Structures are given as structure tokens and as C-alpha cells.
Simulated scan of single mutants.
Amino acid sequence: MKPENRTFIISGGVSGLGLATARDLHSAGAYVSLLDINANVGATIVRELGERARFFETDVSDTKSIEAAIKGTVKWVEETGKAIGGVVAGAGVGTPGLIIDKKNEPLSLSSLDFVLSINLRGTIDLIRQTLPYITTNKPSSPDGERGVIIMISSSAAFDGQMGQIAYAASKGAIASLTLPLARDLSKYGIRAVTIAPSLFESNMTKMLGPKVKLSLEKVMEFPKRAGQPEEFARLVRECVENEMLNGTVLRLDGAMRMPSKL
């Protein structure tokens, strides 16, 4: 699928990996619907990108908030005539927490629910609410392709560290649901692909201390540095354009395998 003259819904779309993805797809001629919680930044990004961008203040843990954003996007699509080509579910959080802490207190359910609600439930909810507007698309290729769903997992899904119970669970679930989602959607000509990045420059990694970040970079094989958002966005573009990418999880990690602890 060519991004040009297609609308892509991107959650977490005004910062980090989501913003890099939005800029890349936009540069390829796409229309981008940006879902995020930061309205001020959203307005700034829309001014930067111009008329082929819209922002919808969205909390992906709130199904009504997602519903409103999709309705707004659909109304915009009706105005532009540029069908929804896909979803990039990029909203996520990484709140750490040991399953049992030094005070012998178990991980709180509220902490667990917060991470799962955004990373897992928010991803599935965004996808399921958008799909009815993709399944009815006119096929865009001789193979009958109608759209693509791109989800974000993490290297933590495969080798999560101490304190990543909730995060690894949420990202592991995303990896696990990729194939059944692709199978569910195959009859509609809609693909499902997941990208599992390791250490990338993002708002989440900005919270890491310099010693922690250096320790993580040391366990990368090559290159020994954090990935750049633009490198992530290039893989998203490939997932959009390459029809043979379907039902798979793509690790983007510089051969990094995270140690048990730093």
C-alpha cells in the first residue's frame, strides 16, 4: 500500500516514535490523524504539518475518548475523500514495579491496570473501533489489500528485566495477538504487523538516568547506541508498503538482549 492519499490514525502521534512515524508518512503524501493526550503539543504539530494533519485529544484508556477521535477522523475523511489506510497504535507507558518490593508489598493492581489499560487494552480498543471503516474500503491493490494495522511491542516482550512485570506482560500480549489478528483480518485484505523496538530515543527513555542508559547501550551488539525515531519510522513505512509483511513481529534492536538486571 502506498501511503499517499491515505489516512493513517496514529496514537501517541505527537511525540517520540509516533511523531517520527507521522512525519514520515506525511512526507510520503499521507493524511495523518494524530491521537494523543497533549493538546498543546498536538496543536503545534498540526501547524507544522499543515492541512493533511488533524489532532484529536485522546486518552486510549477511555473507550469513549477513542470513539470520539475516530468519529472526528471519519468526518475528516468524508471531507477529504482520503480513506483510512491503517492504524499505528503507538500510545504506551512503561511504569516500572517489582512484583514484590523491599517492604514485602506486592505490586499494586492499580499500577498493573494502568499499564495494561494503555498498552494492551488501548491498542485493541483503537483497532477494533477503527476496523469497520477499513473493511469497507475499495481494495488498493490487485491482491485486494484494504489496510494495515501496525502495533508496537518491545524487546521486553522477549527478555524483560526486573521490575517490568506489567510492561512485559502488555508488550508480550501485543506480540502474541499479532498472528491471530492477521488471521481474523485476512479475508478483508487487512494486514497486521508488530514492531518490537529495544532502546530508542523517546519520551519514555528520557526518564532513564545516564548510568542506566549507558548500561543498556553496552548490551547492544551493533550499533552501540539508542535507536533514532526516524529509524523506527522507516520500518513503519516498510510495513505499510510491503504486502508480504503480515502476521509477524519484527525486532528492531541492534541485536540487543536485555540482561536480567543492570
Rank of each mutant, 00 (worst) to 15 (best):
A166T: 07
R47W: 06
T130P: 06
P3R: 04
Q164T: 04
T63P: 05
D62S: 13
L185M: 08
T248K: 06
N5R: 14
L214D: 15
P229E: 11
D36M: 01
E79D: 12
R6S: 05
T58C: 13
W76N: 02
R146S: 04
G254P: 03
A89F: 07
G90M: 14
L235T: 08
L25W: 01
S215N: 15
R191V: 08
E145P: 00
P132K: 14
K187Q: 12
M220R: 05
T205D: 05
H26N: 07
L131I: 14
E57T: 09
L250T: 02
E238S: 15
E221L: 15
L179R: 03
A255G: 10
M162T: 14
Q164Y: 03
G86V: 02
K211H: 11
T95M: 12
I150F: 07
R234M: 11
L112H: 03
I134M: 14
I10A: 00
I134V: 15
L19P: 01
K103G: 09
M151Y: 12
L112F: 14
G97L: 09
L19I: 11
N38S: 09
S61K: 11
I70D: 00
R191G: 02
I100E: 03
V14F: 03
L109W: 07
W76M: 09
T194L: 07
I190F: 04
V88F: 13
G12K: 03
A173E: 06
L35I: 07
E243V: 10
L208G: 04
R257H: 10
R52M: 06
A156T: 06
V88Q: 05
L49P: 01
G160M: 10
L25K: 00
G227Q: 06
G12C: 12
A89K: 04
Y31T: 04
A192K: 00
S155A: 14
L126S: 04
T135Y: 10
I37G: 11
D113R: 11
S117N: 15
A39H: 04
R183F: 04
I45G: 01
D59W: 06
D24V: 08
G42R: 00
L208S: 08
N203W: 06
K82Q: 08
Y31E: 02
D184W: 10
T136E: 14
A43F: 10
A166Y: 03
R234E: 11
A169S: 15
S15R: 10
R251W: 05
Q228P: 03
K213D: 06
R54F: 00
R257V: 13
E230A: 15
E217T: 12
N203F: 10
S186E: 08
L185H: 01
A226D: 07
K64A: 14
I150Y: 03
F232Y: 08
N246S: 13
S108R: 12
V46D: 03
R237K: 14
E51Y: 11
G172V: 05
L35W: 07
D159F: 15
I195C: 03
R52D: 01
L216N: 02
L126M: 14
K82M: 12
K102N: 14
V236C: 10
S154G: 08
G247W: 04
D101M: 12
S215K: 12
L185T: 01
I152G: 02
G147D: 00
C239Q: 08
G13H: 01
K71C: 06
A156E: 02
I84A: 02
M256W: 00
M220G: 03
R237C: 07
N119M: 13
S61M: 09
T178M: 01
K102E: 14
N38P: 02
T44C: 12
A196W: 05
D143F: 13
E78R: 13
